[in-house]
Structures are given as C-alpha cells and as structure tokens.
Design a protein around this nucleic acid. Sequence first.
DNA 1: TGAAATGTTGGGGCG
DNA 2: ACGCCCCAACATTTC
Length: 469
Amino acid sequence: MSAALVWFRRDLRSYDHAALHHALKTHRPVHCVFVFDTTILDPLPRLDRRGEFILRAVEELAAALRAMGGGLIVRHGDARVEIPRLAAELGVAAVFANRDYEPGAMARDEEVERRLASTDFREFKDQVIFERDEVKTQGGTPFSVFTPYKNAWLKRLDPADLQPWPVEEYAAHFAPPRDDAALPTLQQLGFEATDLAELKLPTGMSGAQALFRDFTERIDDYAARRDFPAVKGTSYLSAHLRFGTISIRQLAAYAHAQSSRGAATWLAELIWRDFYHAILWHHPRVATQCFKPAFDALRWDHGPELFAAWCAGRTGYPLVDAAMRQLTHSGWMHNRLRMVTASFLSKDLGLDWRQGEAWFAEKLLDFDLAANNGGWQWAASTGCDAQPWFRIFNPVTQSEKFDAEGCFIRRYVPELAGVPQKFIHAPWTMRAAQQTACGVRIGHDYPLPVVDHAMARTRTLERFKAVRE
DNA sequence: TGAAATGTTGGGGCG
DNA sequence: ACGCCCCAACATTTC
C-alpha cells in the first residue's frame, strides 16, 4: 500500500468523511493536512470571527485525529504551493480531498492538480447529498425551479446516499503525528481576538453535535416556529455546515427518518442547500451576474449613504435595523430577516443586490457563496426560481407578522425599548408627545425612515417593468 | 417563503 | 316591509 495525503478544507471533522474514508481504505500511511490559506484569509478583516472559528475547529480536528493515532499537519500559505510541496516531501501517491463547487475553489483545485503532476488528485462528494448534475430533469437538463428539484431529489434518494463514510475502523492506516503539527496562533494568522467566546457559539465538532442534539428536541416544531426571530426555532447549525464540523449526511438522515412536518420542512431547507450548490456548479456566472440575463439590464440606484444606513442598521425601519444589527453583533442573521433585509436593500433602497451580497459575505460566519448568492438573487427577483419581481415585502407588515410584540426589535434596537407595541413597527407615526412619553425622539435618537415604502415600491415596479422579458 | 388594489357579499342602521 | 347606504370581511386580481 502506498502513502496518501488527505487535504481538509471545508470538512473539518474526523468522522463520516468521504475523502478520509477512501484514503484510509486504499492507502497506508495516510497523512492529513490543513492549510490556513493566505489567499483566502489575508483579504478578510482583521476582526473577522471566521479566523477563530476555523482555528477552534482545526484544533479539535487535530486532537481527534491524534486520538485515533494520526495527526494533522498544518501549513500557513498558498494552498496551490503548499499542497504540491507537501505531497512531494511526503512522497505520497495521491492527494485526497472533498469536492468544492465554488468557481474560485475549483480553479484552485485544478491548479493544485496540475502542480501535483504524477501524483493523483482524487476528489469526492462530501459536502452535499446530491452534487453537480446528479439530480436532473427527465430531459437530462438541470433544474432551475426548486419544487420539481426537491421532488426529484426525494425520489432519487436511497438510504445509501445518507450512509456515513466510516473512518475509525481504518485508524491503523493513519501516519503517526509529525513534529510540524503545531497550530499557529490567531495572531500569527493575522487576526485579532474577537468576541467569539462571548457569543457562546459552540465551536468544532463537539459544539456542532451539542447544537444538533439541542435541535433534535425542537425539530418537530421547526415548521411552526422557524419564522419568528425572537423565538428559538431554527437549528443554528449553518456555520457548522459551512465548515463541515457536522456532516450533511448525519443531518439529512436524521430529518428524513422523522415523520413530523417540522422535520420535513427542515429537510427541504437542506435540499435548498443542495439546489443552490448545483445551480452554482452549472452556472458559475451567477457569482457575478443575474441568473436571468435580462435582469442584468436593471438600472440600480447609486446610494452610498443609503447603503451605509442599511449596513449600520439605521434605516428607520425597526425590524430591518434590528436584523442588520444582529448580523454585525453576532455574525448571524435569522433566515426570515435575511429575506426582509435583502428585499429592503433591493426593492426599497433600489440598490444592486451584489452590494448586499458582499456585506453578508463579509459579516456572516456561515457565509457560503452558493447559498448566499442564491438567497440574494431570490430576494432581488433576478435568480432561478426567484420570487416574482412584483412581490415586494412591506417591512412594516413583515414586522407585525413575525415580531408582533416587538421582542426582537427591542433586543437589538435599544433606542426603541420603551416604545409601546402599537408603534414599535412604525415608530415615526407617534406624535411628539407620545415619543417623549416613551423616551425616544424619532429623527434624533432613532432615524426617520430613509425611504417611503409606498413610493419605493412604485419605483421598483417601474424599474423592473423597464426590463421585463 | 406578499402586498395592494379591486371586487363581492352580507349584516345592520336608517328613513 | 323595503330599499338604500355603509363598511367590515372575505375573495380575487393585479403588480
């Protein structure tokens, strides 16, 4: 048996791991490596929480591999250079990795494969249940509408698709730990300490499992509770799915085995994730352009001050502002609010969805290009199976429906803490005396609405009418 | 995974 | 008793 190298990327776990399983099964000894990739990390802000989240996950991964008799080699540099160099140094016959579907990652992997020369580069499906063109229409074309995709996905699903890829039983094939496995510090990676610990977001595989265990107690209520940001209704697993500290097969298998409406609804969300990954793989152009080319002609407004107000959570619409502050404060935003704020940016402020997409990409701990892009194009009505362009969220109505008592608003917009429920969704409708009574001056302590929704709606309808068909 | 505009219906007040 | 109006409640259509 020849030696192999398993390259960890967005699959930071030591169980149910396709590349690790296949490497261990067919090679010996098997080395493991993680590269803190400077081409990815260096452009991030110094206070980005992802540096620490990844470091914590890699620490736990290294410990778990050591516990099985292996180890994790760690490099800090350009993966396109580090991986071929390490493969040559170790004299491995093959490099194993789990497939990544982002255009940039695919280009990187192709470059690595070229530089590996005679060393095999083997990639595996791991981060989704069905990848690329595995789910297609009867005519063999890719789906561009979710519901038929989901139906075909469910029909195609076989228990084998949800089986874990075992690791531990092949532990004897691990190469023993080397002496160059020391982890860099956060500072050496170029990041400053963040508030990740204060946020109490569980990290690593163990943190992911703890979150999942907690969610299994609530999954049956998911359908009924998921839309209310003040309620603990969602799984809070998104960042862990992003970095692979939990296995998609473990989650999908659990959800599929349940019979509740909540579990079925949550499984549909996991299928959305597969769907958007397939869309990005089939249509890499969506990363920078509208899925529907006709909408590339949309003339978005130029409004740097409006964009700044949106980012800062100072638009004057309480639910939008609470959501934007939740994002900055915690690196996460409730999914209902991702729709509300995305709709507000593109339909109320009239700004290019790519501006909002970029802000989310910078701020979200769970940022994933495929899902983020898909969600933004859905909200902006430029995407596949997007919401119709004339379907425009009313930020006040959404607030009344999904944060009726204003609990969520008051949590993130303390200026409005004293505003009575009757006015919490539209505080500018209070008379001066009422504002004084509840301790806030609208336009002074908290902004007046930066746009009028009714007028903005009319403008958006005109904007889209100009380019429809 | 909307909301607004418009249309319809039916109960109650009233002359 | 009856027609008329008002308007809430619901349904449909339009964007």
